[in-house]
Design a protein around this nucleic acid. Structure first.
Lengths: 144, 144
DNA sequence: TCTGTTGTAACATAAATTATTACAACAATA
DNA sequence: TATTGTTGTAATAATTTATGTTACAACAGA
């Protein structure tokens, strides 16, 4: 299955905050309107991003803001913050291979390092891309 | 969400076929016993692997065999064969961003190339690993 | 105190994955 | 050609995960 849309939604949220922060109060309703999902979904995402130290949220009066310079937030930071995969493991292993079978017993041993290498390759590429890159490109499309 | 266990199950299947091909007839029941899933799940996987030209299956009398040398089958071949992700896209985009919003309208434009780069990095690493690597390591664990 | 907002629980709905049953099509062989 | 064991696949069920929604207490500021 695919990696949860929470990831792209979170990036979308950052782009919105950065774009509109001077002209609007950035509430969960405001963001929900752009992403086109229920405001509670946004609040849950914001709450995770806050736990990761990526945004600040003021309660009561409302409003979200980005907590760090855009070029210090990587896509990997966001990916990790919104917990797209179980336990940090990209690959889902079949649960109960037969331990009586020599292959079943050792399939994990034989595969784990390789799957981890693949996952690392993906995460490494995520780390190279920052919100500054994304938002720069978004702005240039918006201006067209 | 995680990438389907179909991927690791398929690799497991290959390891079983290679390990037991001289001593047993490799039926879906035999494989199902090692992977510990329903035989129909195995048959469906084998059917996809066959479509990709990775295994040969003889109907009626039964039995699966690997169609190519182990070092010519990469994990990417298997990953593609068993269709772990929708439409080949690793990332799930939120469906209906608001087109009235400049950010909603351009978020795809701004992100698509970056997501694709990340996906390519993962697939590239998958391509570097062959069944020969996996099964060699599996055998060495089995011998211990 | 009033207004608008966040945080979160509880629940509902939808979608995807995996499991299971059933049986026709098939191949080998006795 | 009848028998046996197997594959291919449809149909359906069960399970799990993801996403959506309602509701409301906690909160901040005016």
């Amino acid at each position: 299955m695919q990696i949860s849309s929470r990831f792209t939604m979170a990036i979308h949220i950052f782009a919105c905050i950065d774009t509109f922060q001077n002209d609007y109060k950035i509430t969960s309703d405001f963001l929900a309107d752009s992403v086109n999902v229920n405001p509670v979904v946004i609040r849950r995402l914001l709450s995770q991003l806050k736990s990761a130290g990526l945004v600040n949220i003021t309660r009561g009066s409302g409003g979200a803001a980005i907590a760090k310079p855009l070029d210090e937030i990587t896509l990997l930071d966001i990916y990790n913050a919104v917990e797209c995969v179980d336990n940090g493991e990209l690959f889902h292993f079949h649960e109960n291979p037969n331990m009586q079978c020599p292959v079943g017993k050792n399939i994990h041993n034989a595969l784990d390092d390789k799957l981890s290498r693949i996952q690392k390759a993906m995460e490494n590429e995520m780390q190279k891309i920052t919100l500054a890159d994304v938002i720069r490109d978004a702005q240039s499309f918006i201006e067209k």
